[in-house]
């Protein structure tokens, strides 16, 4: 085997190996998905974010348009401030509605953006005014029971329904 051919093959081998490592990191892993494209940031305040995590997807009509990059607790308003990084390709109107949704019954939580009808678009650093908190299962069940109980009480007598 000629020395130069051997060098060539080893060079090809090492480059293919490093290429495979890069592909793994970028295409299979999540390293490439949130720093690749140029993006702008938006913030939104939520009363309750449930199980939302940093890096959770932001979807518009089910399409991933960005990621959650930061979650903070605002000690003045007692709200959760969520920072979103949205791909520059996607523009949303001012009156866009952001809600925390769950994919499937037990899946992970994400932020869904529903576009409104405003003519001006959200810009970098803008705040989304209309938000809808996460559905917390315990609260939903609690509210459901509470509603049932108050309905029953209304039919019995017209006193207040703070039974429990």
């Amino acid at each position: 085997m000629q020395r130069t051919t051997m060098d060539l093959w080893v060079g090809v081998f090492v480059m293919a190996g490093i290429g495979a490592l890069l592909l793994l990191a970028l295409k299979v892993g999540n390293l490439g998905t949130y720093s690749s494209a140029a993006s702008y940031t938006l913030t939104g305040s939520f009363e309750n974010i449930g199980g939302l995590k940093v890096k959770a997807p932001v979807k518009g009509a089910g399409v991933v348009v960005g990621r959650v990059t930061d979650i903070q607790f605002n000690t003045k308003t007692y709200d959760a401030v969520v920072t979103l990084s949205i791909d520059n390709r996607y523009q949303f109107p001012k009156d866009t509605f952001a809600s925390i949704l769950t994919s499937g019954l037990l899946g992970e939580q994400y932020i869904g953006l529903a576009a409104g009808g405003d003519e001006t678009a959200l810009k970098n650093g803008d705040k989304i005014m209309k938000t809808n908190s996460a559905m917390v299962l315990e609260e939903m069940i609690g509210r459901f029971l509470f509603d049932k109980a108050s309905e029953n009480k209304k039919t019995d007598d017209d006193k207040s329904g703070n039974g429990d």
Partner: peptide, 16 residues
């Protein structure tokens, strides 16, 4: 020692 990680990375990416 050098080849092993490279080969495994290729294995994984080809597998995907």
């Amino acid at each position: 020692v050098i080849s092993m990680p490279l080969l495994a990375a290729m294995f994984s990416i080809i597998g995907v």
